[in-house]
Simulated assay, not measured.
Amino acid sequence: MNNKFLQEELNSLKETNNFRVLKECNSSLINFSSNDYLGLANDKELLNEFYSNYHCKLSSSSSRLIDGSYPEVMELERELEKIYNRAGIVFNSGFDANSSIIETFYNKDTLIISDRLNHASIYDGIVNSGAKLLRYKHLDMENLENLLIKYRDKYEDILVVTETVYSMDGDVADIKKLVELKRKYNFDLMVDEAHSYGVNGYGIAYENNLVQDIDFLVIPLGKGGGSVGSYLLCSQLCKDYIINKNRKFIFTTALPPVNNCWNLFILKKMPEFLEKRERLQELIRYFLSLLKENSIETSSTTHIVSIIIGDNRKIIKIAENLKNKGFLVYGVKEPTVPKGSARFRIGLNPNFSKEDLERFVKELKYEIDSVL
């Protein structure tokens, strides 16, 4: 290990305002950076109801293939299959689920066509698979179709990968159009619902009755699910193959029962969160109107609101000033986003008041105009 090289790399990050450090979260601040889109993880009444009905162990102590397939996780998978009418399997994280699918089922003879802005877990899986990669322009179905026309006769095995709601821009893929293209060009389709589960109930694919048309439907739970882990909905054949062939699944200690009891609890109660979802939609409309009134631009249309500031130094300074005024908001800096597009990524949830939003936008506008 070359310590000199490591230090030089870190010094370079500091010079470009890209050096990352871990900071303890201050719970007294109004948090605009959380992914708890429905406020489930911090809902005291919900937590009290859960703990009064469930008494679960804090460790599974084993992988799923030894004794980690405890009754609660098996019940969770049965409930998934009943709701989605597909075989369901639980992964420890969305990252594991995405990368596992691609590296398990696809190889150097596969063409994978990925939305340019798909998550790092998807690209990790593609690298590990050795598949040929093409990227289509973000959300551009015409560009995707042109690639399918050009390459469909050159590959027998083609996978198209998309997310539903995108984390950095808060925009939404046209899943109906993707399914139309799948029927026309006969490719495999993988969809990640990390930022739509909960906000859209059981997800956008479920809402639009498209679950059966999607080969791999991934539902990570660390956002709107208020938890940890991930569901995968697929065919029974693919589920069996994962259990027998996927290294991350086979050699990983299963999530603790307490996590999957909570996941089961939330899954069963999802229809009861309609009021939270409606409140969130109301706040989205109000927040976007406040931004427009204050001439703060965004292309977002969802609960994820992206506000581009520009360079790393400015976004760090604005975040510090907002923290001193009682607001927690983290900047997303280069190179996570393209050069010149450092931004604030706002995550809304139904627990905000309109007064909170008004004060935040007022202070944000002041900082944007004042910090040079």
Rank of each mutant, 00 (worst) to 15 (best):
Gln7Phe: 15
Leu10Thr: 04
Leu10Ser: 00
Asn18Cys: 13
Arg20Lys: 12
Glu24Tyr: 10
Asn26Pro: 02
Ser27His: 10
Ser28Gln: 11
Leu29Tyr: 01
Ser34Cys: 05
Asp36Trp: 09
Asp36Gln: 00
Leu38Phe: 15
Leu38Asn: 10
Gly39Thr: 14
Ala41Trp: 02
Asn42Val: 12
Lys44Gly: 01
Leu47Ile: 11
Glu49Ser: 10
Phe50Ile: 02
Ser52Thr: 08
His55Asp: 13
Cys56Trp: 02
Leu58Gln: 08
Ser60Asp: 13
Ser61Ile: 03
Ser62Pro: 03
Asp67Leu: 09
Gly68Thr: 08
Gly68Tyr: 07
Met74Gln: 11
Met74Asp: 09
Glu75Ile: 04
Arg78Phe: 14
Glu79Ser: 12
Arg86Gly: 14
Ala87Trp: 00
Ala87Thr: 04
Ser93Thr: 07
Gly94Glu: 11
Asp96Cys: 05
Ala97Gln: 05
Ala97Tyr: 04
Glu103Lys: 06
Asn107Glu: 07
Lys108His: 14
Asp109Pro: 01
Leu111Pro: 03
Ile112Arg: 15
Ile113Tyr: 12
Ala120Met: 03
Ala120Pro: 00
Gly125Tyr: 04
Asn128Asp: 05
Tyr136His: 13
Leu139Tyr: 00
Asn143Pro: 09
Asn143Thr: 15
Leu144Lys: 14
Leu148Trp: 04
Arg152Cys: 00
Lys154Asn: 10
Asp157Gly: 03
Val165Gln: 08
Ser167Ile: 01
Gly170Glu: 10
Asp171Cys: 05
Ile175Ser: 08
Ile175Asp: 07
Tyr185Cys: 03
Asn186Tyr: 01
Phe187Tyr: 12
Phe187Ala: 08
Asp188Ile: 07
Leu189Met: 10
Leu189Val: 11
Met190Ser: 10
Val191Phe: 10
Glu193Gln: 14
His195Val: 07
Tyr202Cys: 04
Tyr206Cys: 12
Asn209Cys: 09
Val211Cys: 13
Ile214His: 02
Leu217Val: 01
Ile219Val: 14
Leu221Asn: 04
Gly222Trp: 07
Gly225Trp: 13
Ser227Gly: 15
Val228Met: 03
Gly229Asn: 08
Ser230Phe: 05
Leu232Ser: 02
Cys234Phe: 06
Cys234Ser: 15
Gln236Lys: 14
Cys238Val: 10
Ile243Met: 02
Lys245Gly: 01
Asn246Pro: 04
Lys248Ser: 06
Lys248Trp: 00
Phe249Gln: 07
Ile250Gln: 01
Pro257Gln: 01
Trp262Leu: 15
Phe265Glu: 01
Lys268Gly: 05
Glu272Trp: 12
Ile296Met: 06
Thr301Asp: 14
Ser306Lys: 09
Gly310Thr: 05
Asp311Pro: 09
Lys314Thr: 06
Ala319Gln: 03
Leu322Glu: 02
Lys323Cys: 12
Asn324Phe: 04
Lys333Glu: 11
Val337Pro: 13
Gly340Glu: 04
Arg343Ile: 04
Arg345Asp: 14
Asn349Leu: 15
Pro350Asn: 11
Pro350Tyr: 07
Ile368Thr: 06
Val371Ile: 15
Leu372Trp: 09
